[in-house]
Each structure stands twice: as structure tokens, then as C-alpha cells.
Design a protein around this nucleic acid. Sequence first.
DNA 1: ATGCCAACACAATGTTGA
Length: 264
Amino acid sequence: MRLATWNVNSIRTRIDRVTAFLERGDIDVLAIQELKCREDQFPWQQLTDAGYEVAMVGHNQWNGVAIASRVGLSETSIGFPQTPAWGDDQVSEARAIRAIVGEKVGLPIELWSLYVPNGRELDHPHYAYKLQWLANLKEHIAAELAERPDAKISLVGDFNIAPHDEDVWSMEFFEGKTHVSQPERDAFFAFLDAGLTEVTRERVTQYTYWDYQQLRFPKNQGMRIDFVLASPALAELVTGAEIDRNERKGKGASDHVPVIVELE
DNA sequence: ATGCCAACACAATGTTGA
């Protein structure tokens, strides 16, 4: 089974690139982030025509996550217990969706498509929100793993954290900025402490994001912030991982590229 | 070679992203 995750930065703008990628990459399951649309604006038809079932959540023009699968899709749920709300008016944001995929090929996986809050600035309320969001999600996953140690669980998506110095093109540039701070990194490592493995790092060393500005892509000044985490029972089934770097080229590219994992 | 910010809402700028 081929599983991918991709922050598309607007599914409406990128739908043709998405369907082309699914075909070219022979992708069975795609976790999507930054849909930037509501349910009634989502391009259902194109994905259905391509043979995929889709579960999505999108409240407005921001955030939005989805799972598209051609190998089964069931038991969809949105968010997680104790999902923090954002801001003074306590808005519920569309940043996490979960479903069981792969049952049609005898490999049922509990898959989470995640768009971790950005954080904005180290002293911004969004930063505290980001850390709380990560901590509460980790608690939920840790409890699940404690109850079912053999569960095949995968957390994928845009984590908006560069866990190691080599995951950004310049630590000097990111001094004092979000994504590289120790509390964010600790929040990420807490998932590993809970028993998950980041199955991409040992197989892919490239960045997954390059800013649109300043010729960041041609200069290869990027960040590694999109990951595939897997529970022990799932991690042992991973046989390969790659990114689709070509997807960042040309007019109309997302600023993130797909991260692909091969299972069994 | 990838190429010098983009997408959204809304109607001129403001928000968000990382």
C-alpha cells in the first residue's frame, strides 16, 4: 500500500495537481492539509471520478483536512477528545481528521491527517494554543496505544515543527522564530516517547517545504516539517519512503511537497 | 533547473502562512 501526506495550500486551486499526483504516484491513500474550503466548496467529483472515497472537514477559508482512499474508508471522526479551541471566541478549527483506511487490502490502519497550528510568534497566544493542541493529541494517542499496543496507527501531516537543527536551511535565520523552539520540539518528541516512530527520517533527508519568497526553492532553502509517524505494529511494515520533489516545480505549485510511504 | 509570495474574502486592503 502506498500512503501519502500533502499540505496542498488550497484544494480548489490544486485539484488538478492532486489528481495527477495520485495517478503518477500510484497512491492508495492521501492525507491532505490546508484545504482552505468548506464542505460545499470541496471538489468531490474529481476525487470520486478518480476512484477515491473522501472524508473532510473545513469550516471556512482557513485550515481544513481530509483523507482520500481507494482502499476503504470508514469510522471517520473529526478532532480528538480535548481538542483545544482557538481565540477569544473559542473557534473550533479544522485541523484533525481520523479514519480507518486499508481494510479493502487487508491492512486496516487508523490514519490521522493533521494540520498542527502554526504558532505565529513565540509570545503569541497561537503559540500556547499550538503546544496545548499537541499535548492533548499526544495524550489521546498515548492512551490508545496503552490500551491497544498492537494497533496500527499513523499520524501524518504538516506538524509545523522542525525537530532537529538540520531540518531547516539556517538555524541563524530561525533564531527566535517558531517551529524550532525547544518547547515545540519537546512536544514533537513526546509522540516518539509515547511509542511512535517517525518512519520518514531514516529514509528521506530532503526538505518538505520551501517558502514562495526569496527563491527559497531554487536555492534549496527549505524546512522539513511534514512527517509520517507510525505505531510499532505499523512501523515494521514500512518498506520505503520518498518525497515528490518535482511537485514543488512550476507554476501553481503548493509550497509543500507530498511525503510518500510504502507499506508491506 | 526548480525562478525572485500565494490564497483567501472581498472589492482595497487585511489575514494567514512559516
